[in-house]
Nucleic acid binder design. Structure first.
Lengths: 110, 110
DNA sequence: AATTTGCGCAAGCATTTAATTGCGCATATA
DNA sequence: TATATGCGCAATTAAATGCTTGCGCAAATT
């Protein structure tokens, strides 16, 4: 179960995205994560392993527990890939900056 | 070969990302695309089908040819998912980050 | 010291996926 | 009209993926 293993592939799985969401704010150990899913602890453990191999989370061993914490900078790879196409779906704006100004303006409007 | 079929999964494949890159600027027919890859025409045709099913490209039939053109607005789904984590990897001054901090400060206010 | 708990390893299994090959049907072209 | 071209539709195969189960080790608890 180890072939092409990149960030794009890692985030393709919904369970892995959920895991990332859970370890974004504070570290969680593997069992704590596993309890939140319907799949077995082993399945979650494997997802964690994959995410770790991709550099999307770090693992801090503490006694017999392994605390997982999100490491999201690798997502910039995906973000950059997508950014180049933003102009195609948001044709009147051709940069993130302008896009941001747009939503900011919308939001600020009372 | 039709199960979970979402945008995250569609862009997980490098060949499909390459195809999207090729049809971003001007439409290409299936054979023209296939020539650029080492895999068979059928393989490319299948990737095109998947991308089409995900709404990531449109197909315009013209005679016996099918012109594929990128439709990137579905990528915003991925972009939005990623955006929520940008603050974790991009700690430098960034308009989006500032924006996020701004609303976060508002929210955090007790 | 004995037991429980957290968790990785590894084997096994069902699906899914990517890719190939052969076929046939339209639409072009000679 | 005969032939070439573009391309989808299976059917098939090999590999990858997600998941489970059983095992065992090391750290914590009793």
């Amino acid at each position: 179960m180890d072939a092409r293993r990149d960030v794009f592939q890692a985030i393709a799985d919904p369970t892995r995205r959920a895991i990332l969401g859970m370890v974004a704010n504070q570290p969680q150990n593997v069992n704590a994560l596993a309890e939140k899913f319907d799949v077995s602890r082993q399945a979650v453990s494997l997802h964690v392993k994959i995410l770790h191999e991709c550099g999307l989370l770090t693992i801090r061993q503490q006694g017999r527990e392994r605390y997982c914490e999100g490491r999201f900078d690798k997502l910039s790879e995906v973000a950059e890939w997508i950014e180049q196409y933003r102009k195609f779906w948001n044709s009147r704006l051709d940069s993130l900056e302008q896009y941001l100004n747009q939503i900011q303006t919308k939001t600020d409007k009372p």
